[in-house]
């Protein structure tokens, strides 16, 4: 009995050791980015590496914000992200609701189709998109980029949102209709409030993906008028040999919204992302 207890304790210690390894592996690089962002330049390029900032400063943050186009880049990303989310939420929610609550011929095939379109190489779409957007004067515009983002985020949104609608009993619409609601009324007044958290989590998932995207933005934006922050930051690194301290500060600033949004809805988001996994 005593040995069983000891072997259990060993297992527990082992489990924590592995868990902390993953925690360290995942977070140490991010912590290092924060440390670097707080170091003055002379401490970063120093011959002997310092493992913590000896005199921590915030000048890197002030400088990247005031002396570069970073605020504009962030604003562009914000506008493009918002547009993407709005398009996905309006069109995607309707489709997801239909897929989840109604039965109609061709539904299964359509759902699979929405999954398969995600397999199409982005590069294969990016070239004609470039030509199409150019023809419509949407190249290098917020809307053009948002439309491009919708191409791969809409199917994702519909699948994730369908999972949340699936948790609502089909009888609910019927009940609302008996009480005199139209189908739209039932959706807006009865069902949407029930999937509010799911909608928020799905929208945030799409927002993070749009905020982070790099390749489409690189190809489809050409000026500072619509260039997003990932492209801008990478260009600064390449063109102006951006000092590491400023780069680190820029990186931290731009991932703060991501971390906050994820923290707000993490439980629901994890549930939405893994809905398929649990059902098998």
């Amino acid at each position: 009995m005593a040995s069983l207890k000891r072997s259990n304790r060993m297992k527990t210690v082992g489990a924590y050791a592995v868990a902390f390894f993953f925690l360290f592996f995942g977070l140490a690089p991010i912590v290092w980015l924060i440390i670097t962002s707080l170091k003055p330049e002379h401490e970063i390029v120093n011959r002997t590496l310092t493992y913590y900032p000896h005199d921590p400063i915030l000048t890197n943050y002030v400088d990247i914000w005031n002396q570069s186009s970073f605020p504009t880049l962030m604003m562009n990303s914000f506008i493009t992200t918002t547009m993407t989310v709005v398009i996905c939420v309006v069109i995607g929610t309707l489709a997801a609701y239909s897929f989840s609550q109604y039965r109609f011929p061709g539904k299964h095939a359509l759902l699979i189709f929405y999954l398969v379109v995600r397999m199409f190489p982005a590069v294969l779409m990016i070239i004609p998109l470039f030509l199409i957007l150019r023809a419509f004067g949407l190249l290098d515009s917020h809307l053009g980029l948002a439309l491009a983002y919708t191409s791969f985020l809409m199917p994702l949104f519909i699948w994730m949102m369908k999972g949340f609608f699936d948790t609502v009993p089909v009888e609910l619409e019927k009940a609302a209709r008996i009480d005199g609601c139209t189908r739209v009324g039932a959706l807006v007044r009865v069902i949407m409030p029930l999937v509010r958290n799911g909608l928020a989590a799905t929208a945030i998932f799409v927002a993070i993906a749009a905020w982070n995207e790099y390749m489409f933005a690189l190809m489809l934006t050409t000026s500072s008028g619509s260039r997003t922050w990932p492209v801008g930051l990478q260009l600064m690194i390449g063109e102006f040999q951006l000092p590491w301290g400023l780069l680190a500060a820029g990186g931290i600033i731009s991932i703060i919204p991501v971390i906050i949004l994820f923290a707000l809805v993490q439980q629901t988001m994890v549930r939405g992302l893994t809905a398929g996994a649990v059902k098998g």
Binding site: F20, L23, P29, N212, P230, L233, Q234, A248, I255, V270
Partner: peptide
């Protein structure tokens, strides 16, 4: 811990790549 280890996955490639380039 299960939530915290997800963090790298949500980071943009631009940041993820440059963190490691720095390290």
């Amino acid at each position: 811990i299960a939530v915290l280890i997800l963090l790298p996955w949500f980071l943009p490639n631009v940041v993820a790549g440059n963190i490691w380039a720095l390290m």
